[in-house]
Design a protein around this nucleic acid. Structure first.
Lengths: 137, 137
DNA sequence: TATGCCATCTGTAGCGGCTACAGACTCAAG
DNA sequence: CTTGAGTCTGTAGCCGCTACAGATGGCATA
């Protein structure tokens, strides 16, 4: 298979990743510094693959450090697979915790908006509830 | 009622808000600069109330700009209440969108971990799915 | 009075994960 | 030869804190 060299703009188009972000990933060592044609960065299909991987991992909410780890583990046999699983499972726990947090917020907000709609209270129910002292921590 | 002056440490304890954060809120104009006893900031019960308000609004996920707006609307009659409602409703929409995002992540992650457990696949299912090209954007 | 020791002070820099410039250059087409 | 799009480097900004360093303040104890 041919591997035609592409420039950063094309890489950006193919992966949906911002040009500035690509250069940022290079700066922080998440993407390797590609060879240059003249002054311009010259990418190949491997870069498209790797950057796509990064983007998809980011969409799943992995931090850049986690993505780095995943990249290191990619293609490393069954032992690596177990490590990947651990990483994913712990990230999943995170995600679920964040969902739980947001649901708590959602409930309170929805209640407040409702109280507002139903409201014959003297004063705004949401403001009132924000002023209500439930003590520290 | 007396309004005994308290120092920043006590304000922190009463509100559960970090000392550095209190000073930060002052710098950005979210909390007023209090009078000083000597060089030390001297707070009263109003400050405890206001900071508690801020903290609770933050816990509901309002941005600092939104909190600023809410503070401006607090205690402003029924017209303000409508504005507060609008703000809260739009924030609620945000929160719901974030929940939806996270749930999408959760599903994919949970599936991947499961595939990993069930796995007799050649190669790590999660890694594979991250490499799978679903095209740009 | 000297000595700790904690609380507080100011100022600045760092985190993550980008994003947004400014100002220079390269390169192909018209 | 000029124009325009693409790319380059470098730096600074965003949010919402958090974490220092290094100087004071004020109180209790020896």
């Amino acid at each position: 298979m041919a591997d035609p060299a592409i420039q950063i703009g094309e890489l950006s188009r193919r992966t949906g990743c911002n040009i500035e972000t690509i250069r940022y990933y290079e700066r922080i060592g998440l993407m390797p510094a590609p060879p240059r044609r003249g002054r311009y960065r010259s990418y190949g299909s491997q870069d498209v693959g790797r950057l796509g991987f990064v983007r998809r991992a980011r969409e799943l909410g992995f931090t850049l450090d986690e993505v780095r780890a995943l990249l290191g583990l990619a293609g490393g046999g069954p032992a690596s697979c177990a490590e990947v699983r651990t990483l994913a499972a712990s990230h999943l726990t995170d995600v679920r915790a964040r969902i739980a947090d947001l649901k708590r917020m959602e409930r309170v907000l929805a209640d407040s908006v409702q109280a507002c709609d139903a409201g014959e209270d003297p004063g705004c129910p949401l403001i009132q509830s924000l002023y209500a002292d439930r003590g520290p921590s």
